[in-house]
């Protein structure tokens, strides 16, 4: 078998085409990062004019949006439209469907590859957007904390607040010399960090029985669900908002360590 044949075989080994009345379901070798299921799409037709439509399950965008990567952002929408246009795809905002319409039978193979590439690009784009946005927030906070000129203050990232309990690791642990109540700081972009913070609070209170301040810094006032914010604010030491009031947020954190208000840059 030639190298080209081996490559072709590898590319096609896990591609399956399943016929149904009115079209075909195509299973690709790639897995959806959100569900773990294979990424698939559909070819329906022939429609009037002997044309076919290649389409998703009308949930690709809905699933991304449910993960927080909504198309409300102008930049994200522009990126989305750009990826669509590269592959000749369209998005119907009303039905939620992504498709390449009006495909001639002779073009099906090429367009099917384009559609698979389109779905993969959209998945990557969404993940990168979420990750990039998370990093900007984390980087901004890290730089601000590193720039604080407070005597005896130490800021350490990625370590457990109690050495013998590594179950939940906050984003930062702040300690002030001569003050024996450390502070565990969680940076939240979703409900998960609020859960982690509440879990650490309960563990410290009932199992470890050592004093600690648990603070969650929300990226914005609308981060996470209202229900979770309510739950957290009733349980942890403080819930603060970052965007738009960064200095006050840092001072609120420092106040937990009994540090006087500080000029934050």
């Amino acid at each position: 078998m030639s190298f080209q044949q081996r490559i072709c075989k590898a590319f096609c080994a896990e591609v399956r085409v399943n016929q149904f009345r009115g079209g075909f379901g195509v299973s690709t070798p790639f897995a959806d990062a959100l569900t773990g299921d294979p990424i698939g799409f559909y070819v329906v037709g022939p429609q009037p004019g002997h044309k076919f439509k290649i389409m998703d399950d009308a949930l690709t965008v809905a699933r991304f949006e449910s993960e927080g990567a909504t198309l409300d952002s102008k930049q994200r929408m522009a990126n989305f439209q750009e990826v669509l246009s590269i592959y000749g795809g369209s998005y119907d905002e009303d039905s939620g469907e992504i498709a390449i319409p009006d495909v001639m039978e002779s073009e099906l193979e090429r367009k099917a590859l384009d559609f698979m590439a389109l779905l993969l690009r959209l998945q990557d784009m969404t993940q990168q957007t979420q990750e990039r946005s998370k990093n900007v927030f984390a980087d901004d906070v890290a730089k601000t904390l590193a720039g604080l000129a407070v005597d005896g203050l130490s800021v350490v990232a990625g370590v457990p607040v109690f050495p013998d309990n590594k179950e939940v690791i906050p984003d930062f642990v702040l300690r002030r010399s001569g003050y024996d109540k450390p502070l565990a700081l969680f940076l939240a972009k979703d409900n998960e960090k609020l859960w982690q913070a509440m879990h650490l609070q309960m563990t410290a209170e009932y199992e470890i029985k050592k004093p600690v301040s648990i603070v969650v810094l929300l990226e914005s006032g609308s981060t996470g669900s209202q229900k979770m914010r309510d739950k957290a604010s009733n349980r942890i030491s403080a819930l603060t908002n970052w965007r738009g009031d960064e200095g006050a947020a840092i001072n609120r954190i420092l106040r937990e360590l009994e540090v006087q208000p500080h000029n934050v840059h």
């Binding site: 399950d57 009308a58 809905a62 909504t70 939620g96 469907e97």
Partner: peptide, 10 residues
């Protein structure tokens, strides 16, 4: 993010 199970008009 939208507070409910995601389903579209399809």
């Amino acid at each position: 993010a939208r507070g409910c199970f995601p389903i579209t008009k399809k």
